[in-house]
Write a protein that binds this DNA or RNA. Structure first.
Ligand SMILES: [Mn+2]
Ligand SMILES: [Mn+2]
Ligand SMILES: [Zn+2]
Ligand SMILES: [Zn+2]
Lengths: 139, 139
DNA sequence: GTATATTTGCAATATTGTTGCAAATTGTTT
DNA sequence: AAACAATTTGCAACAATATTGCAAATATAC
């Protein structure tokens, strides 16, 4: 059984062509994807609405997580196993390369905890770092 | 001379009614503002285009900075003095309250530095934390 | 294979963002 | 303070992005 099918079934989602293709895109991609990337990179072309709904379903089920950006865009990337419906635990650092424009999940770099002023009760942290990625550094 | 005028002049921007009102909104507001907040909270109503252009000008001049979000929105908040045209230094933590929905600049909480894998060259960091703010904790 | 539940695409609508250009406003010069 | 030059604004037209209801298509359960 392949990974895509595996993930969908594990989450009790019915297996449709759209979900298979879109999830595949994420598995194959080395960086995060925006809605637009998905619309333009699927072989079969799905309705824009289907893409929205599929992304939403995937987020709700802990299959992908969102990465905040500063350009009226949301980026999405695969979660690791520990996430599930209503339970995201993607507290790793995200790196946006100014050169190749890719956004990479640094799964092994944990968002450090910080000390908050009295009364603040943190629940989820996100960290996004811009710079030059290791690939672009070499070239 | 009031603060609003002061900031505009310091940056060599001509003083117009729109810029004055919008900058005032930021100075008076206790949280970050989205484009929509600005459009609906100015007494005089400015054209949507003017708001876009004003925000852009303010960002370019280091008067306000952007805060990334995960909902196809950009939040804006006042910079401290050290920022200028092409030079942002807003590496503080941003706190989004799940209760009151406000986004607050924790100007005194610096984004901690993290150790990156070999080859990654970080330039700018942003950190956004969701949780319960101190005001909402009390009530 | 049929029944039931879920998902999809379409269409209509709403919201958000961009561009060119003429009119209005601002800062500068006399 | 009037005239000038430079900048900013609003409008209009357009483009891109997002949301909703609903009927047809598809997927799973039986
Ligand atoms: Mn990630
Ligand atoms: Mn801030
Ligand atoms: Zn790169
Ligand atoms: Zn709050």
């Amino acid at each position: 059984m392949n990974q895509t099918l595996d993930i969908l079934k594990k989450n009790g989602l019915s297996v449709t062509e759209g979900r298979r293709e879109i999830l595949n895109l994420f598995i194959q991609s080395d960086g995060a994807l925006a809605h637009a990337d998905i619309e333009s990179n699927t072989k079969i072309s799905f309705d824009r609405v289907t893409v929205y709904r599929t992304l939403q379903t995937f987020v709700e089920n802990g299959i992908i997580h969102q990465i905040p950006t500063t350009d009226n865009t949301i980026l999405y990337a695969l979660c690791k196993d520990k996430c599930g419906a209503g339970h995201h635990h993607d507290e790793h650092v995200h790196f946006i390369c100014n050169e190749c424009e890719k956004t990479i999940c640094l799964d092994d770099v944990t968002v450090p905890s910080v000390k908050f002023p009295k009364g603040f009760h943190p629940l989820q942290s996100a960290m996004v770092v811009k710079g030059i990625c290791s690939d672009c550094r070499k070239n």
